[in-house]
């Protein structure tokens, strides 16, 4: 049911970045960066921000590393989608943009783990994805939507367990971005983008 997929190399990533619509993507990413900047600055400002309230613990580092592992897998999954040949513009543009967000999340999580003195998890050499089931653009969109919904739940479950409230705030910021991805993917599938008032 599944195939192992090589982790994307830098060349493939660069080719995506050279897509004709890169200007629009750059503009979009710039705006999203502004939206995320509050939490990001709090973390990247260094230990002073992280020292607010209760100190971070080894448990916090574990949670951050789990999130980093999932983000790295999401980056690889979007690479598979982008290279599948199944995605047409503007959906391809969405996939590349969302992959860029996951790269930003992973970068922030990695820097934070490093600041806390933790050992970073690395991207796997290979990931297993159910590529045999991906036959159409909608199949890819459903697969991505499933991962994004799971990501919302994962961050929702992570927010209350952080000892440090700044980390909880950053996780909540990423959660909001994942929820937007999920809603937009559902919309692209012709489904109700926001099917309920609460997430679980």
């Amino acid at each position: 049911m599944t195939s192992r997929i090589q982790t994307p190399d830098a060349g493939l990533t660069a080719s995506l970045q050279n897509a004709p619509d890169r200007e629009a993507r750059r503009s979009f990413l710039g705006q999203s960066g502004l939206l995320l900047s509050g939490a990001a600055i709090a973390l990247l400002a260094g230990r002073d921000a992280l020292a607010k309230g209760k100190p971070s613990t080894a448990s916090d580092v574990n949670v951050l590393n789990s999130a980093l592992g999932a983000e790295l897998e999401a980056i690889a999954a979007y690479q598979v989608g982008a290279e599948s040949g199944l995605l047409q513009k503007p959906v391809l543009h969405l996939a590349v943009t969302f992959q860029g967000h996951h790269k930003e999340h992973a970068d922030l999580l990695a820097k934070t783990i490093a600041k806390l003195g933790g050992q970073l998890v690395s991207a796997k050499a290979q990931y297993s994805f159910p590529v045999e089931t991906l036959k159409t653009q909608n199949d890819v969109l459903r697969f991505a939507a499933m991962l994004e919904k799971g990501a919302v739940s994962a961050y929702l479950g992570a927010v209350p367990v952080f000892n440090n409230r700044e980390l909880a705030k950053a996780a909540a910021s990423i959660l909001g971005d994942e929820a937007m991805h999920w809603a937009i993917l559902r919309n692209a599938l012709g489904e109700d983008p926001v099917p309920s008032a609460f997430m679980s």
Binding site: S66, A70, L147, K149, S153, A154
Partner: peptide
């Protein structure tokens, strides 16, 4: 569905 960011039935994630 809440587990699917990190888990799958048939393979390790």
């Amino acid at each position: 569905a809440r587990c699917l960011a990190c888990h799958a039935l048939a393979y390790n994630r």
